[in-house]
């Protein structure tokens, strides 16, 4: 039927085994990255990189801190049955970036696509699509929740972002955020609370097939505990940084540059 179905069994196993990540396991996972230690007193996880002034900033922080506190077990999001997958999954916002470079890659069926992982990693390097597919495959059937109000269900297949960073030698102790650039000019920042989550994946497959163009081919991010605008499509490069200064308006992402919350869990 499809090229990715052989992993359905693995998925079942994983689902039964890993209902939630224990704290210990989480620290082990983070330890595998290198310097990052996820401890309860790391205030970074409770406050967005740039707090808005006034009452609005207090509300943002209350929202993020309360949810992060309740998520400290790194619970997995609910998965759906394969029969619940939405036909005609909507294509929203950017559907085909006009960048010349992107169009060249697309015509070449993304064979030349390379994902550079740079910044505060111990061994900066690039990954081809084939290399990404060689990582342990993570498959999840989840709800895509747009902040506008719509939602749809799809199966996503990809490599855990954590594994990819590990393969780049792990991160340096001062690493705080992972900035991801996309074709078409979008960029978004993520903290390590989300990076270590097992359902945070660089997805190259959708519903058993290669990721379609409109959904962000060849690779998009799935960061399941956030609204749709954090699920960056058409990924171009990854940079690990200690601060979001110097990216756009310095709020940590294009959406927050536009006035949306950086933290999109609510």
């Amino acid at each position: 039927m499809s090229k990715y179905t052989e992993n359905e069994e693995n998925k079942e196993n994983r689902k039964n085994k890993e209902k939630t990540l224990t704290r210990r396991k989480l620290i082990t996972r983070a330890g595998a990255l290198g310097g990052i230690l996820l401890t309860g007193c790391d205030t970074d996880f409770y406050v967005p990189p740039k707090v808005r002034p006034g009452l609005m900033g207090i509300a943002d922080t209350l929202t993020m801190a309360s949810q992060r506190l309740l998520l400290s077990g790194q619970q997995l999001v609910q998965e759906h049955d394969i029969s619940e997958i939405t036909k005609n999954f909507p294509v929203w916002n950017q559907s085909n970036p006009e960048d010349e470079e992107y169009q060249r890659l697309r015509r070449g069926n993304y064979v030349d696509w390379q994902l550079p992982v740079t910044g505060l990693v111990n061994q900066p390097r690039s990954f081809s699509l084939e290399e990404l597919k060689r990582f342990p495959q993570q498959t999840q059937i989840t709800s895509h929740i747009c902040e506008q109000g719509w939602s749809a269900i799809a199966q996503w297949i990809g490599a855990q972002l954590l594994h990819v960073l590990e393969a780049a030698g792990g991160v340096k102790p001062e690493a705080r955020y992972v900035m991801i650039d996309a074709y078409g000019g979008w960029y978004e920042g993520y903290d390590f609370f989300d990076v270590v989550h097992p359902q945070t994946i660089l997805a190259y497959g959708m519903n058993g097939k290669d990721l379609p163009l409109g959904n962000g081919a060849p690779v998009r991010l799935r960061v399941e505990r956030h609204c749709g605008y954090k699920q960056l499509k058409f990924i171009k490069s990854i940079q690990v940084v200690s601060s979001v200064e110097g990216f756009g308006r310095g709020t940590g992402g294009l959406n927050s540059d536009f006035g949306f919350h950086w933290y999109a869990g609510a």
């Binding site: 949810q67 309740l70 998520l71 619970q75 997995l76 999001v77 609910q78 709800s143 929740i145 109000g149 939602s151 399941e224 505990r225 956030h226 609204c227 999109a264 869990g265 609510a266």
Partner: peptide, 20 residues
Amino acid sequence: QMPAFTAISPELIDLFGGRQ
């Protein structure tokens, strides 16, 4: 309706029968 909150408590979705 919040993706982070339904990760905390998936029972909420079941309670309503779906986030829509």
